[in-house]
């Protein structure tokens, strides 16, 4: 057990692991200290006196611009963005992936290739045309507009994910269902859907973390009162007015990172599968 190889191996891993954990630790301890203690002490020392006031302040009092109702506003905005975006994007992409895998029609593959190539185009190239489209249909600046944007940009990777999954299912199952007389929607709802719960979980993980963590689309397509949490966090931390309250900032940071972290720690190996798939998104 304590061979030289093992000491080296585990020693390295533990040191690296500590490095990875350090920021999380610093975040937590800073958020539990009062400002006087932060000014005096060092960021690595545990709090002498634990206070939850920074958390309360971050959640309900921190200011962005004129609003001083804390991160709670951004949190609920993010919820109202993430939930419909996840449902809509997965609904569209799963049906589409199913159509591509099992009901191939002429030309379908061409559109699919454009879609996948589109996933590699920097968003900056498409930001402005989408602003115009959303303005034309009257959704610019609204949460619905952002939901549409997330559904659009989630489509390539999710469609690929579902197409590959449905393609890997035995073709004969699909044929048997057709002989049994089930149609497009019947096969999707009664055969495919019950068989593909794992891939739906992967897609949900992928989308929840991706959409929750988004900053660029949030800042482009929403207004201050509809900002998602990430945008609000950045505004709180990087606002130039007033005294910097590092403990409040760190509490706000943890709050913002909490949802994806919880998803991550609960989902474990499925998360790895999800990001391996989502990594293509870049």
């Amino acid at each position: 057990m304590f061979s030289r190889r093992n000491i080296f191996l585990y020693g390295t891993l533990v040191v690296v692991a500590l490095y990875y954990l350090l920021p999380l630790y610093v975040m937590v301890v800073t958020s539990l200290k009062g400002m006087p203690e932060i000014r005096l002490g060092n960021i690595f020392s545990p709090p002498l006196e634990i206070t939850f006031e920074p958390w309360v302040k971050a959640w309900s009092q921190a200011c962005t611009g004129l609003n001083c109702d804390g991160l709670s506003r951004g949190f609920w905005n993010s919820v109202r963005i993430t939930v419909p975006s996840v449902i809509l994007s997965i609904a569209i992409a799963s049906v589409n992936g199913y159509a591509l895998a099992n009901w191939r029609f002429k030309g379908a593959d061409t559109f699919f290739v454009i879609l996948i190539v589109g996933a590699f185009i920097p968003y900056q190239v498409m930001i402005y045309p989408i602003v115009i489209i959303l303005r034309e249909i009257g959704l610019y600046g609204s949460l619905s507009g952002l939901v549409i944007v997330h559904s659009i940009f989630g489509m390539p990777i999710l469609t690929l994910l579902f197409r590959n999954y449905f393609t890997s299912m035995p073709e004969e199952l699909f044929r048997a269902a057709r002989v049994d007389g089930a149609g497009f929607w019947g096969i999707y709802l009664r055969i495919m859907l019950p068989m593909s719960l794992p891939i739906f979980v992967v897609a949900i993980i992928l989308q929840v973390t991706g959409i929750w963590n988004d900053f660029l689309f949030g800042v482009v397509y929403t207004r201050p009162d509809t900002y998602p949490m990430t945008v609000q966090l950045n505004n709180i931390v990087n606002s130039v007015q007033g005294v910097k309250e590092y403990n409040v900032n760190m509490a706000a940071t943890i709050l913002t990172g909490l949802v994806p972290l919880i998803v991550y720690f609960i989902s474990g190996k499925l998360f790895v599968r999800g990001i391996a798939a989502g990594a293509v998104k870049g």
């Binding site: 954990l21 610093v26 975040m27 800073t30 963590n213 990430t230 900032n249 940071t253």
Partner: peptide, 23 residues
Amino acid sequence: FRTIFLYPFALSFIVTGVVWQWL
């Protein structure tokens, strides 16, 4: 170990940036 090395990936760039700005 894998869980520890991978958890930062679950965090947004904003969160990452803010933490490291502090560190």
